[in-house]
């Protein structure tokens, strides 16, 4: 088999796994958009906040320590204990639920019935607010995130592909873990939406707010539920991305990778987010591999958007989005 073909296979596999990482971020957007029609600009910052909170809890850091020390002249930074990873993840999930309740109570409850652009603007405000709170609460330094996820080359795949092709493929154990976690997460979300009372309420609200209200579904409750789920998805994305690069501000920028995925997969489809992520992941990886060297490289960021735009031209609602038919 020609070397270039073998390399392309390796690039494709890595692209697929990268796509799963993009899909993890896109999922949070889809959940909120589907249930409330809000394009949540704050989803990336929620991932940053969740990851910072997780590390803070794990390491026993005092939240707002710098602020407390500045005001009271104290010198406290740590509680003096460390929290096991699983317990810290659960506590962080509770914090994200708390955030969902506060966001709903103080922001979105007052904006029910407003134009989508107003709701979008509110999420921009929320993003910058959360960014500032995150800095104030945990500081701007890079934090090391270690919840025990395996990282580095998968030796089994390396050995098998070496025996097959004479060249061992590089697949990161962290990416494999992310793919498994994403599969479980999506299966869980679909099962929740299909088979639980709350899930059915969520779907009813997504289909028609007014109709859902008329049959006694509490809109505020459903929105809190959806924002909580999006917060937990943000936590999962924050763990996966933060394990790669440490937890730092750049984590909030991963939201930019979700936009082409949403454009391609549709804003209202969970499977769409996954398929969109995979197409973007593979597409940008193969383009960088085949064309990148001829045009100076670093094509991933812009090519993802070009790919999404091409799909948009032919299918404006995305691959799995709902086609809007408005009758006059």
């Amino acid at each position: 088999m020609p070397d270039q073909l073998i390399f392309a296979m390796e690039v494709t596999l890595n692209g697929l796994l990268n796509g799963v990482m993009y899909a993890l971020v896109a999922l949070g957007f889809v959940l909120i958009f589907k249930a409330s029609g809000i394009f949540n600009y704050a989803q990336g910052v929620m991932a940053l906040f969740a990851a910072m909170t997780l590390v803070g809890i794990q390491q026993g850091r005092v939240p707002f320590g710098h602020l407390i020390n500045e005001i009271f002249g104290t010198d406290i930074h740590y509680f003096g204990w460390e929290v096991p990873a699983l317990a810290a993840i659960l506590l962080t999930a509770l914090v994200m639920i708390g955030f969902a309740i506060l966001a709903q109570r103080f922001v979105f409850r007052h904006l029910v019935g407003q134009e989508p652009i107003i709701l979008f603007m509110a999420t921009i405000g929320l993003a910058y607010f959360l960014e500032g709170v995150s800095d104030l609460m945990w500081g701007s330094e890079i934090r090391n995130l270690d919840v025990g996820l395996p990282q580095g080359i998968n030796d089994s795949i390396d050995a098998v592909t070496f025996n097959l092709f004479g060249y061992g493929f590089f697949i990161d154990n962290l990416d494999i873990t992310a793919a498994i976690v994403a599969t479980v997460l999506v299966a869980g979300l679909i099962a929740f939406a299909q088979y639980t009372k709350q899930g059915r309420a969520m779907r009813a609200v997504a289909d028609d707010h007014q109709a859902a209200l008329s049959v006694g579904i509490k809109l505020n409750y459903v929105w809190v539920l959806v924002w909580s789920l999006a917060g937990i998805v943000a936590l999962v994305a924050g763990i996966m991305w933060g394990s790669k690069s440490g937890v730092q501000f750049s984590l909030s920028l991963i939201a930019l990778k979700a936009l082409p995925v949403l454009m391609l997969g549709g804003f209202t489809s969970i499977p769409g987010a996954i398929i969109g992520g995979l197409i973007i992941g593979v597409g940008e990886a193969l383009f960088e591999f085949a064309i990148g060297p001829m045009i100076g490289g670093a094509t991933e960021n812009w090519f993802a958007y070009v790919l999404a735009l091409v799909f948009l031209v032919f299918r404006p609602q995305g691959l799995f989005g709902e086609k809007i038919i408005e009758r006059v």
Partner: peptide, 21 residues
Amino acid sequence: NLLAVDSPGQEQGNQWLQIRR
């Protein structure tokens, strides 16, 4: 050999695959 990484540099998987090759 020149390998560019777009800012901020969170994603470099493709560049490191090329270095590995």
